[in-house]
């Protein structure tokens, strides 16, 4: 006879079950969902969970990627491999195209990351998408700690932190008016370490830049940035070759790497478990401008 203790899920299985439930709920209730896919580890874990939620059927929604023009080639390669394997439709919204179309103006000072916001909102609107899955986690940043799983956005794509819908039990409210949409965060309750444990457990394919490699880098604002034609060195910045890996994946002019020899998933898990600096604080220029950088970008309609 089994006892109650035999019917406990591990915390990773419980998180997986919760995320799968969220995916199915959205697809059952909302008209046109889309999964915002960056090619980073979080969006790949999302894709894996979505695959599990609908197996043996195909994913019932397309992927949307905002191409900043500054994406790591290794990330694009992994993206293409996933798209091929799942036989899923990929929509690419390009920042360069948005500039060419006059939707955006490149003033030379605004970061690509910031310009993604308008490109993303335009792509969501023109695709008629009413629910966009994002890989945001509540442990990432202070402003995200209060984000709902179903995050309501008005017709301008804005988030109003003071006027969020209460979210109780696992009863999600997917009501929308014309022009509004929802951001859905199936990984809300996952931590960075959970993501890595899951990738290691499921042997999920992720971009090679997460693993330790030799790379030509230079220092800027205390971060190690990649040498790249689109990301020229400024005066006084010196390029050296070092053994590094990336903890997050964003546009390469803003995403720094860390010195690391972690070359396998198990070594990464070990490194993350003892890390003393948050992944965004360590390597994301976009979150360091002010104490409320993320909060401000989210209000405008960021991922």
């Amino acid at each position: 006879m089994k006892s109650a203790a035999d019917y406990r899920l591990s915390q990773l299985d419980e998180l997986e079950s919760e995320s799968i439930h969220i995916f199915r709920e959205v697809v059952a209730e909302l008209e046109r969902p889309v999964l915002m896919f960056s090619g980073g580890k979080d969006s790949i874990v999302m894709l894996r969970l979505a695959e599990k939620a609908f197996h043996p059927a195909r994913l019932p929604f397309p992927l949307l990627q905002v191409d900043t023009g500054l994406d790591f080639p290794e990330v694009l390669a992994t993206r293409d491999a996933w798209v091929d394997r799942l036989g899923v439709n990929l929509v690419v919204a390009s920042v360069d195209q948005a500039i060419a179309d006059g939707i955006l103006v490149d003033d030379g000072r605004t970061s690509r990351n910031r310009m993604q916001i308008a490109t993303l909102l335009e792509a969501l609107e023109s695709g008629g998408f009413t629910a966009a899955f994002g890989g945001g986690r509540r442990d990432e940043e202070k402003a995200r700690a209060k984000e709902r799983v179903y995050s309501h956005r008005d017709e301008f794509g804005q988030w109003d932190p003071k006027n969020q819908r209460p979210e109780l039990w696992s009863l999600y409210n997917g009501r929308l008016h014309e022009g509004e949409h929802l951001r859905i965060f199936p990984l809300s309750n996952w931590t960075e370490l959970d993501i890595w444990h899951y990738i290691a457990r499921e042997r999920i394919e992720i971009p090679s830049i997460y693993f330790s490699h030799r790379r030509r880098v230079f220092e800027r604002d205390g971060m190690l940035l990649s040498e790249h034609p689109a990301n020229p060195c400024r005066e006084g910045e010196v390029v050296t070759e070092r053994t590094v890996r990336f903890r997050t994946v964003g546009d390469l002019s803003l995403t720094g790497c860390v010195e690391s020899t972690a070359a396998t998933l198990d070594e990464i898990v070990e490194e993350v478990a003892v890390a003393r600096v948050t992944e965004r604080g360590a390597t994301r220029g976009d979150d360091r401008f002010s104490e409320a950088a993320m909060e401000d970008r989210k209000k405008e309609g960021y991922f």
Binding site: R138, D139, K142, A143, A145, K146, P161, K162, Q164, S188, N189, T191, L193, E291, A292, E295
Partner: peptide, 22 residues
């Protein structure tokens, strides 16, 4: 654990915040 700027300004917590540790 102070999350949002509006909360910091008012010195109070106005919403549920989720925290994680293991």
């Amino acid at each position: 654990t102070d999350g949002l700027r509006s909360e910091r300004e008012q010195g109070i917590t106005i919403d549920v915040a989720y925290r994680y540790f293991a």
